[in-house]
Design a protein around this nucleic acid. Structure first.
Ligand code: MN
Ligand code: MN
Ligand code: MN
Ligand code: MN
Lengths: 147, 147
DNA sequence: ATACGTGCAAAGTGTTTGCGACAGT
DNA sequence: ACTGTCGCAAACACTTTGCACGTAT
C-alpha cells in the first residue's frame, strides 16, 4: 500500500510523518485527479482547518521527489499534481469547454514517437503530448445548440 | 512579403505603423527563433535604445492576433514567440543541456494522433507534442565525458 | 534534546495593464 | 485635431522561501 511505502521513504530519509503529511497523503494518493496546490489546499482545509498553503505545497513537492506524484502543467499554466498509481505513462486530452481531462495511452504512438526522435539522433528522456478540444459531451452540446 | 501583409492588416484594423512596430517586424519576422519577450526586447534595444518592454510585449501579441506569430510555452514556463513562416505545423524537440530546439513534422504521427482522438470521440482542435532530452551534439559530449 | 516541519507573511518571477505624454493618420 | 501607441511603473497571479515557533523522534 502506498501509505506504507511513503512511511518507509520518510524513515529512510530521516524525515518525519506529521499529521499534515499523513492526512494529505491519505486524501491525495488514491484520487485520480490533477490537483493544483490551491485545489488540494481547499480540500485539506475541510479536514484540517489550520493547515497552511505552504505545507500542502511542500508536501506535494515531497511526493514528487519520492516518486509518488507527477507534476504537470497544461495550457492554463498552473502547476498540477497527480498521484502516480502504477509506473504507467499516459498522455492527456483536455476539454477546453468543461476542463475534463481524459487520459490515454497508445503504444503505437509511443513507438512512432521514439522512431522520430531516433531519426533526428535525439536522445529522448521525456515527452509531452496533449490534445486540446471538446470532449464528447461538450461537442454534443455544441451541436445541439446550433440546431 | 510579410511586411506588406502586416501593413494591410494594420490599415484594415485602423491601427498605426509606428517606428517601433516597423522595426520589431523587420527584426522578428524573418528569424527562425523562439523568442521570449525579454530576448526580443534586448535585441531591439540595440536598434532602438529607447524602446519599452511593454511595446515589444504588445507588438508580439499583435503579431499573434494577426496570424504572423505563434505563442509557445515549453518546459521552462516562459512564453515564447516564433514567426509563422508558412501555414506549416511543426512540433519540437528541446535539448535540456544546450537549449537547442529542433523542429520536426511527421505526417504519420499526426494521422495516428487524429485516430486516437477519434477513438475517444474527442474533437481535437490543437495539440502539443514536445520531446525533451539531449540533442546529438550534447549526447556525444556526454559519451566522451564518460570515457 | 534535537532537528525537521509548520504557518505566516514576504519575496520572487514573468505577465499584464493603467495612465499621461507622444505621434501617425 | 483625433486617436492609437509608447514608455514607465504598478498590479497581477502564481510560486517559492525565510523565519520563529511547534513537534516527531
Ligand atoms: Mn506518451
Ligand atoms: Mn494524468
Ligand atoms: Mn504535431
Ligand atoms: Mn517552432
Amino acid at each position: 500500500m502506498k501509505e506504507q511505502e511513503l512511511k518507509d521513504y520518510l524513515k529512510e530519509k530521516g524525515l518525519r510523518l506529521t499529521h499534515q503529511r499523513e492526512n494529505i497523503i491519505k486524501h491525495f494518493c488514491d484520487k485520480n485527479k490533477h490537483y493544483t496546490v490551491e485545489e488540494l489546499y481547499e480540500e485539506m482545509k475541510k479536514e484540517m482547518p489550520g493547515i497552511g498553503f505552504a505545507t500542502v505545497y511542500r508536501t506535494l513537492q515531497l511526493l514528487v521527489a519520492a516518486g509518488f506524484a507527477l507534476e504537470r502543467r497544461f495550457k492554463d499554466d498552473v502547476t498540477r499534481f497527480e498521484p502516480l498509481h502504477k509506473n504507467d505513462h499516459h498522455d492527456h486530452m483536455i476539454c477546453i469547454e468543461c476542463g475534463r481531462i481524459i487520459e490515454f495511452e497508445n503504444k503505437k504512438l509511443e513507438r512512432l514517437k521514439d522512431g522520430v526522435a531516433k531519426k533526428h539522433n535525439f536522445c529522448i528522456l521525456l515527452h509531452k503530448l496533449e490534445f486540446y478540444g471538446y470532449c464528447e459531451k461538450c461537442r454534443n452540446k455544441k451541436i445541439k445548440g446550433k440546431k
